[in-house]
Simulated assay, not measured.
Amino acid sequence: MIEEPKSLRIGPDVGRRPSVEQVAAFQGVPTGFVVDAMFGVGAMCVDISPLDTSNVQVAGPALTAENRPSDILATLGCLRYLKAGDVLIGSAQGWQGCAAAGDRVAGMAKNAGAVAFVTDGPMRDYDGILEVGLPCWCTGLNPGSPFGTGPGQVGTRVMVGGQPVETGDMIVADRDGVVVVPFAKIDDVAARLGAIQDMELELDAEVRKGLVLPDPIAALLDSDKTEVM
């Protein structure tokens, strides 16, 4: 016989956060730069996109909620543990049958200090969410209401958009999508961002000047590594 589960469980790392300096290193950085600094990994799947397509960029520590499909109790439980600057991650285990949150949840999360909400489910109350002003990334819209009965977990490891997310990981999100930087790799990734930005700006300048074919590609085409059929 299975023991009756607790309605909510709070993980031991619910208070883990990167330093102010670590968070600052990712402010204003495009998600593409962050993925490049992690050698091509860390991006959530393309199903998760900004609800409002205006030009928005956020970066902050994750606080995770693991919900059962069609339930949001863990997301609501996170409201007590949110810290200013957090990105609330509301896992719906990919459930698309109802909304993973709406304008009231978004409003309460913003009141608690969240700078964004990310979920692998849809959302509802589009106009209300825009009025609240909390940037949200989700899989689309669904008018169905979720339950709030649990069980669920706050501050534990979740899978969202194909990426593992733990509380304290750095989340960077913009119009291109959402990227997860594991807590243990924050410093290493931040240290590479400057070089990535320099390379990108240099290539941008060359394209504006009329660049058609990058030198490495030209060299490859002219080498014995290319065969003309």
Rank of each mutant, 00 (worst) to 15 (best):
G32E: 05
F33A: 12
V35M: 06
V35L: 03
D36S: 11
M38C: 04
M38D: 02
M38S: 02
F39G: 03
F39Y: 08
G40I: 00
V41F: 05
V41K: 06
A43E: 13
A43G: 01
V46S: 14
D47K: 11
S49C: 06
P50Q: 05
P50D: 04
P50S: 06
L51Y: 03
L51D: 08
D52W: 01
S54D: 07
N55E: 14
V56Q: 10
V58P: 01
V58Y: 04
V58C: 06
A59Q: 09
G60V: 00
P61N: 00
A62Y: 04
A65H: 00
E66H: 13
N67Q: 08
R68G: 14
P69K: 00
S70R: 13
S70V: 09
S70N: 10
S70Y: 09
D71N: 05
I72S: 10
I72C: 11
L73M: 08
L73V: 04
T75D: 07
G77P: 05
G77W: 01
C78G: 11
C78N: 06
R80G: 12
R80V: 10
Y81Q: 02
L82F: 01
L82N: 09
L82D: 11
V87Q: 09
L88C: 13
L88D: 11
I89K: 00
I89W: 07
S91P: 09
Q93D: 11
Q93M: 13
W95L: 07
G97Q: 07
A101H: 13
D103C: 00
D103I: 01
D103E: 15
D103K: 07
V105E: 15
V105I: 14
A106N: 12
A106I: 00
G107E: 12
G107M: 06
A109N: 05
A109R: 00
N111H: 12
G113W: 02
G113I: 03
A114N: 12
A114S: 12
D120V: 11
D120Q: 01
G121A: 01
Y126C: 12
Y126H: 14
Y126A: 14
D127M: 10
G128A: 11
V132W: 10
C136I: 15
W137N: 12
G140W: 10
G140I: 09
P143E: 15
G144L: 11
S145V: 11
F147K: 13
G148S: 15
